[in-house]
Simulated scan of single mutants.
Amino acid sequence: MSEDKNCDLLFEYLRSILYDSQIQTLDVAKLEEPYQKLGLGLQFLERAVREMKTYSEALSRGNLSVKTPPRDNFLCENLKNIHANLNHLTWQAKQVAKGDYSQSVSYLGEFSEAFNTMTRQLQEREESFRERLLTEAYLDPLTGIGNRYFLTEQMTELLKNNKPLIFCYCDLDHLKYINDHFGHVEGDRYICHFVKTVKNFIRKEDIFARVGGDEFCLVMEDWTAAQAKERITYMQTAFEHVETKPYPKGFSFGVIEIPTDHKDLCVNDIIEQADHIMYQQKAQHRHIYTKQLSDE
């Protein structure tokens, strides 16, 4: 076989390796001996190219479980690095999905910046969402003060610390009458006016919560029962006279003093005791308001 014939066979085989989807075969035995070694080298190249094409196609389709080509395939070194990076990124993405926003990427250029921005924004959004949930869970939407859950949690902690406390249970008078005769919007104004009045008389550290439609609780430290009753009586006067309405305004309250040695006293027990005292005043107010409301 002539030299040109050997070169033509090898060149055509190399061209087929590089460009054909179906690579032509090469019978090395048909080559003259000086060209057989080159033919074997091209067969090794063919295998490496086939493995590279199969490997890259699998990766392009997201098949990360694809078998890694042998170590002697030098054409796949960069693909192997990409494969390893994709596997690690997949693991990191799963960790982020579980809530681990500490994951970051520092070896993939622009993708690293995009990934790190994504995890940071996810963390910020989750924190904001949690804060909003806590706000909605612990605050009364109409008045913006604490609700029953808030009161229970705060009181439970104070009781654990064995601190002496003043607990006041307040109940708005004739809210149902106002709702029935003037509408629920006016009833809401009545509630908000009460909350605004109370806030003017209490300290920032005092606990104030709405525990029912017309029921409120106030918890104070470093006060005596006498001081609390005097302060709340001022609140009643202010609530009654500050704003003119076509109906009488008022609320009833009951105050109890919680000593440091309260033993196993729970929040519900405290509310029940203060509620019982409050109803004694409620009965007096009902007698006063009955005539006023019947005359309107």
Score class of each variant (00 low, 15 high):
C7S: 11
D8A: 11
E12A: 11
E12Q: 10
E12V: 05
R15S: 06
S16Y: 10
Y19T: 09
T25A: 15
E32Y: 04
E32A: 03
Y35N: 07
Y35I: 07
G39Q: 00
L40Q: 01
L40H: 01
F44D: 00
F44Q: 00
F44C: 00
F44G: 02
L45H: 06
E46C: 14
R47Y: 03
A48M: 07
M52G: 10
K53T: 08
E57G: 09
E57P: 06
L59P: 01
S60P: 04
G62P: 09
S65K: 14
V66F: 11
D72C: 01
N73W: 06
C76A: 03
E77D: 03
E77C: 05
E77N: 03
N78D: 15
K80Q: 08
N81G: 13
I82H: 08
H83F: 10
N87A: 10
N87H: 11
A97Y: 03
S102K: 13
S102G: 11
Q103V: 10
Q103I: 12
S106Q: 02
Y107F: 05
Y107H: 01
L108P: 00
S112C: 00
S112P: 01
E113F: 11
A114T: 07
T117L: 06
M118T: 09
M118Q: 12
T119G: 09
L122W: 00
Q123P: 04
E124A: 05
R125K: 07
E127I: 06
S128N: 12
F129A: 15
F129E: 13
R130Q: 14
R132W: 05
L134W: 10
Y138G: 11
L139K: 13
L142C: 05
T143I: 07
T143W: 09
I145A: 06
N147A: 06
Y149E: 14
E153F: 00
M155F: 07
M155D: 05
L159S: 04
P164R: 06
P164W: 06
Y169M: 08
C170L: 12
Y177A: 12
D180L: 04
H181V: 11
H184K: 03
H184R: 10
V185M: 04
V185C: 01
D188S: 08
F194K: 01
F194C: 01
T197H: 09
K199S: 02
K199F: 00
I202H: 12
R203N: 02
K204L: 05
E205T: 07
I207T: 15
R210N: 07
R210C: 01
D214S: 05
C217W: 14
V219R: 00
V219W: 01
E221I: 01
D222Q: 05
A225H: 03
A225K: 06
A226Y: 05
A228W: 14
I232E: 04
I232R: 02
I232H: 03
T237M: 14
T237H: 15
T237A: 15
E240R: 14
E243Y: 10
E243P: 08
K249A: 15
I256S: 13
P259I: 06
H262V: 14
K263R: 11
N268T: 13
E272S: 13
Q273T: 14
A274V: 07
H276D: 12
I277T: 08
Q280C: 14
Q280N: 15
K282D: 05
A283G: 07
A283I: 07
H287K: 15
Y289W: 12
L293Q: 12
E296N: 12
